[in-house]
Design a protein around this nucleic acid. Sequence first.
DNA 1: AAGTGGTCTAGACCACTAA
DNA 2: TAGTGGTCTAGACCACTTT
Lengths: 240, 240
Amino acid sequence: MSSRSSARWEEVHADIRRRITEGQLRPGDQVPGEFALAEEHGVSRNTVRTALTRLTQEGLITEGRGRLGRTVRAYNAVEWRLHRDQHAASSLELDDDRRPELRVSVSIEPLPAGIASRLQLTEGMMAARRVQVTLVDGLPYQLSTSWFPEDIARDTALLDTEDTRDPGEILTSIGAAQDRVEDRIAVRMPSPTDARELDLPAGTPIAEHTRTGFRAEKPLRVTVTLAPGDRTVLAYDMSG
Amino acid sequence: MSSRSSARWEEVHADIRRRITEGQLRPGDQVPGEFALAEEHGVSRNTVRTALTRLTQEGLITEGRGRLGRTVRAYNAVEWRLHRDQHAASSLELDDDRRPELRVSVSIEPLPAGIASRLQLTEGMMAARRVQVTLVDGLPYQLSTSWFPEDIARDTALLDTEDTRDPGEILTSIGAAQDRVEDRIAVRMPSPTDARELDLPAGTPIAEHTRTGFRAEKPLRVTVTLAPGDRTVLAYDMSG
DNA sequence: AAGTGGTCTAGACCACTAA
DNA sequence: TAGTGGTCTAGACCACTTT
């Protein structure tokens, strides 16, 4: 009866997963403790831990701290709308009472290889880098890094850290409107650096959204946005 | 000297990660064995295993089997182009010598809740379900499930398992062309079912792409496509 | 203070696979 | 058949957080 695989930790794993999917354990609920599960299933605590570690990295439960223990993870992702308007801007769809907080920093940096090729420039050339962090309720929702050729950014609002508009809108306002954008969306696990910067719980994959903007087939900018999967759903409206 | 965190497994973890990012270990290379690493770092084998398990779930190394041991994972994702043409079709960009193999199956099923709401229909109503698996070199690259209201699909090519065109194209060919599509892209870890159906190595997140097609604001279809992050990069061309 | 998870050890036995 | 990883045990000690 039952148990396709022989591993005992898989029984524990399947048991907890079932309790979650069937609604017996709901988001925010406390997961039974490791000692209790060990006794319940007649296995050692380390075997239980194998199961719980897997569930953590699958994004179903949280890591535990102190007396609280582990809880079932709650997901409440927000739509990130990628528009097809003239600026190719984007926006987060938040409840009325939640306001995003934007932090912008700007610097002149040598181009990394991956960005340089998209801008059709040479690796190591100096370029303007604009980093924008979008926080909602103090939590980072997006980490967005834009690169502009220096001749386009020089002495413009692109270097203004007070201007928190979308890069596409700023380009339009300085007379360098894009006529086409290309989007690439890769899905991957975060590096430890990504996880730290985005304050990611274990088991959270991210979307790496790369937008290249062109004017007359010349690249004007590249924007790489990291969007955690537990906070964001990308939305495209392809009308017309 | 060094080591921000006190955990010993993190030293091993950081060490292997460094060897990979610095190119000392390249994709396909064999990772040093667990016993060797234990001796090298002066820790127990289980401590090494903690580090290697993390690296596996971060998608950096494979699980090990038999004498081969673990290897550094190789990524070679292919572009999945989501067009804005009149059919809102999509295509995989493969090398000339790689041909996708398409398998289609069709059935009449009751609508699950999530799909029903997108189709503006009632959960449990019967609808046509069309499942398309795209294999490349025998490996599943996409698992695509389309739902159509029964009155639209009845006696049409939508129920033909030999017709492997994009659902949007088929809709056009039967006189029910879409005039608008909405795309939603969620990023998540696979369930065990997803992992089995898509033959996913541990540590592979997936994109869940949901396309809803409309005609005069009436939903004609919903297509949910699962695309593994190690095989696919979504590509949108948002030309004006 | 009590109970939770996090880390770590030193073994043991098994399943798999390349040589 | 030798060596790899996969599973499992039975402890131990620590850090943390709620009560």
